[in-house]
């Protein structure tokens, strides 16, 4: 069964008819071709690689249906940079070597962008607590935490 939805993604309004059982992550990747949102744990909701923001809040896009986002505004990693300039998080992740394979990175950035908006002066403990839903299997988190702290400094 299908349903027509109106979803704004990165500021662009889309009207699409989608299968009701289509997950938001598949809508973003397969329907819109925005493949920066990754699928790592094969839709189990465990890894956080598919994190996007729905109305400014981080969610795992494999944990909701596209029809649930009808009327909502979605931001993906492709919508993070502004005016061709990398977001401060993208800069500091680069400078602090906060990624190796990079597969988890878009999800982490979409989660942490919201976190820093709400908590501009986080402690290391708070940063680590905020990362619970995003799994990285390369770096061991030390550089990720350092990059987030550096981005927080730069954004203040």
């Amino acid at each position: 069964m299908n349903r027509t939805v109106n979803i704004t993604v990165n500021g662009v309004a889309y009207q699409e008819t989608v299968p009701i059982r289509m997950l938001l992550v598949d809508f973003i990747r397969d329907r819109l071709g925005l493949t920066g949102t990754h699928i790592s744990c094969t839709y189990e909701g465990r890894c956080g690689a598919c994190t996007v923001q729905v109305n400014g809040e981080a969610v795992k896009s494999c944990m909701l249906l596209a029809v649930q986002a009808d009327g909502d505004s979605v931001t993906t990693i492709e919508g993070l940079s502004k005016d061709g300039q990398p977001h401060p998080l993208q800069q500091t992740f680069n400078e602090h070597h906060a990624l190796q394979c990079g597969y988890c990175t878009p999800g982490i950035l979409m989660n942490i962008e919201e976190f820093l908006r709400k908590n501009p002066r986080p402690s290391e403990t708070e940063i680590r607590h905020a990362l619970i839903g995003n799994i990285c299997r390369c770096t061991g988190y030390v550089h990720i935490v350092e990059a987030i702290a550096a981005a927080a400094d730069r954004m203040r």
Partner: peptide, 9 residues
């Protein structure tokens, strides 16, 4: 509860 993503939904 869970992680930030889960707490939003």
């Amino acid at each position: 509860i869970g992680d930030p993503h889960v707490r939003h939904r």
